[in-house]
Design a protein around this nucleic acid. Sequence first.
DNA 1: TCAAAAGTGTTGTTGATACACCCATGA
DNA 2: TCATGGGTGTATCAACAACACTTTTGA
Lengths: 233, 233
Amino acid sequence: MRSHINTHAPLAHEVLAAVLQVRSDTLKVLLWRRALDPHLGRWSLPGGRLRPDEDVETSIRRQLAEKVDVRQLKHVEQLAVFSAPDRVPGPRVVATAFLGLVPSDVDPEIPEDTEWHDLAALPRTAFDHEAIVLRARDRLRSKLCYTNVGFALAPSEFSVSALRSLYSAALGYRVDATNLQRVLSRRGQLVPTGRTSPSGRAGGRPAALFSFVGEGVHITDPFAVFRPPPKRH
Amino acid sequence: MRSHINTHAPLAHEVLAAVLQVRSDTLKVLLWRRALDPHLGRWSLPGGRLRPDEDVETSIRRQLAEKVDVRQLKHVEQLAVFSAPDRVPGPRVVATAFLGLVPSDVDPEIPEDTEWHDLAALPRTAFDHEAIVLRARDRLRSKLCYTNVGFALAPSEFSVSALRSLYSAALGYRVDATNLQRVLSRRGQLVPTGRTSPSGRAGGRPAALFSFVGEGVHITDPFAVFRPPPKRH
DNA sequence: TCAAAAGTGTTGTTGATACACCCATGA
DNA sequence: TCATGGGTGTATCAACAACACTTTTGA
């Protein structure tokens, strides 16, 4: 069985990432403009071919390193496989799509042919890349609600109101700063650093600064319902 | 770029599914015993090679059709790509893993070399298949809480207490029948069929029968927190 | 009339929203 | 001292867990 697994038509595997960042209060995705046919001039996701010696996550991290400093990429996760036989013209290519997140306080050096695009107004994209971007957005939105992924969008130190605007931009609706702080604090995700930020030009009380307790995504609101019975004292 | 994408080492793509079913109050997975080396005699997931003309979901459905009647497979969803270069010996094979669900009232004809195995006591599995099974279990458990996937584990008509034992088996802890009914009803997932089941040998009040409102998984508890503001009246 | 199983009512808790009010700073 | 933004306190609400109680059946 396994022995004739390679006797069929060749099949290539590529990895693609929708790298998201909140820039000027808007959720953006990093796209590059294709310089070759097919789909010359359209915008597409960074990525490329899977090499023989790497798994898909290693591969996407390597390929993104050319666009974004790896240190700045705070989170990477698999989204799904896109495998329609005709998803790209020519020989078949199956793609594993990723979500990548960059905190809002960095402005990576990016190549000439790449740009940050507003997710709410995507340009004409190549192949099935628009579907991938939308999938990334939806994944981010749900995970913001029940995990600590927020840390990957935020600077290492931030005021609650700065965090509020990040969440608002990513989720697409106004989030209340008061309750955001309470929710994250109750879940033990937010720690005060003790420092404060100078108040802005218009005055106002200086904001206390916070940071997330740890890196690495984990679930903070594990069971919406059907909770397992709590441990008896 | 794209033009030399096929000049590298060949790469095969396989699809694998962890097909789960609750059988005699236990969550089980369908495994087949390998008849060939490598890993001869170990238990592995059904699946096989991706053909040139099909996408991964079409492929896994086709390959499962040999084991389980497709009509009986109420739900199929992608889990993740498993791509470690050495995940199988020999030429490289990347796998797309799936979760499949079969309702508890069917007992599919399965081939000689396949068996249902208790998830709590997995036998020695081939390759990375154990990790895939565990991933499937975890996905099912979380989705039971915030979606209507339950329909894919349940018969088309059932009593609340039957549903309770399905949920208990899948989740791994006791679920209260009273509250299960209330939660699902509040979310508009459960409709009474009007019929009742005859009471058992030991007597007792006959149970009212229910069914899920629809097929197709969708999220029923969309936002654990950070809910978008409700529409004003 | 009793045991068994199903179904209902009630109470309490938790986690979240909304909003009024208080605090600290720059001009 | 006032405008501006940050922070706290509190009322309220919704969803769920727990459990006692009632109903309906078979023997």
